[in-house]
Simulated assay, not measured.
Amino acid sequence: MNLWASLLDQAKDCVDVLVYAGLFLTDGTPDLAKRLIHKAENGVRVRVLLGDPDSEAVAARGAEEGVFGGVSARIKLSLTHLQDAIGAPGVHIHLHSTTLYSSIYRFDDVLLANTHVFGAPAAQSPVVHVQRIPGGRLFDHYMSSFDRVYSGSVPVEGSVVHRG
């Protein structure tokens, strides 16, 4: 089982994800929406923040990576994969329009931070493993950032699947 699915399965209290697209999560865990719903049904707080595909920040990131509309398209694909979880009780899927310096993946007291490198896709940037420890500040520093983005985000509502 891959690291991400293992951390998700082990989470008992909270799952927090802050990304632009995070497409690797839905690609690597095709049943991610069902897993998030199951976690929420069992009392786990689930918050997923995706980039607003129409925001200036996402457009800038696409231009910086040289893929232009590609980041926006990846976000829309992730939303499609997460469709079943949108609006599910206890699953909070929101859009943000912030400049993203790090993607954050929190599973209880384990946090993975993908430190973005200018002009490179997230997959080509290092990931830092941060464990919550008594007296430690780094974990809380990342989560403070997450909470600031969450406070300015908007919930995804209704169907995001577009049928032509």
Rank of each mutant, 00 (worst) to 15 (best):
N114S: 09
P155V: 09
P126H: 05
L32T: 05
H162W: 06
G43Y: 04
L77S: 06
A5Q: 10
V58Y: 00
G87M: 07
V149F: 05
I104P: 01
V46A: 00
R137M: 13
T99G: 11
F68N: 13
P155R: 08
S6D: 14
D147L: 10
V160I: 06
L111H: 00
L3C: 05
L25R: 09
V117P: 04
A113F: 02
G136A: 13
N114L: 06
S55V: 01
R132D: 11
A57V: 02
F118G: 10
V110I: 09
D16I: 04
L100D: 00
V160M: 07
V15K: 00
E41W: 06
L112C: 06
S97E: 14
G43N: 06
L82Q: 02
R61H: 02
A88H: 06
R106Y: 10
T98Y: 07
D108M: 07
E65T: 12
D140V: 05
W4E: 10
L32D: 03
I37S: 10
P134L: 11
R47E: 08
H129D: 09
K12A: 14
A85I: 00
T99Y: 13
G152V: 02
A63W: 10
D27G: 03
P30T: 12
Y105A: 12
S103F: 07
S144E: 14
E56T: 06
Y101W: 13
K76F: 02
G135I: 10
P155H: 11
G70Q: 05
A5N: 09
N42Y: 04
S159T: 03
Q131R: 15
V67C: 13
L50K: 00
G136L: 07
R74K: 12
R61A: 01
I104S: 04
S72L: 03
L32P: 01
D31S: 15
E64P: 07
V161L: 07
Y101P: 00
F146E: 01
I133Y: 12
E56H: 10
V117L: 14
Q10M: 09
S72G: 15
G152F: 05
A123M: 11
G158E: 02
E64V: 11
H94P: 03
L79T: 03
R132C: 04
T99E: 15
A57G: 03
F68C: 07
R106V: 13
S72E: 10
S144M: 08
G22H: 00
V110D: 05
V130L: 12
D109I: 04
A122H: 01
F24P: 00
A33D: 09
G119P: 06
D16Q: 15
P134R: 13
E157G: 04
S78W: 00
N42T: 04
V128P: 05
S78C: 08
V71Y: 01
A59N: 01
M1E: 11
G119S: 13
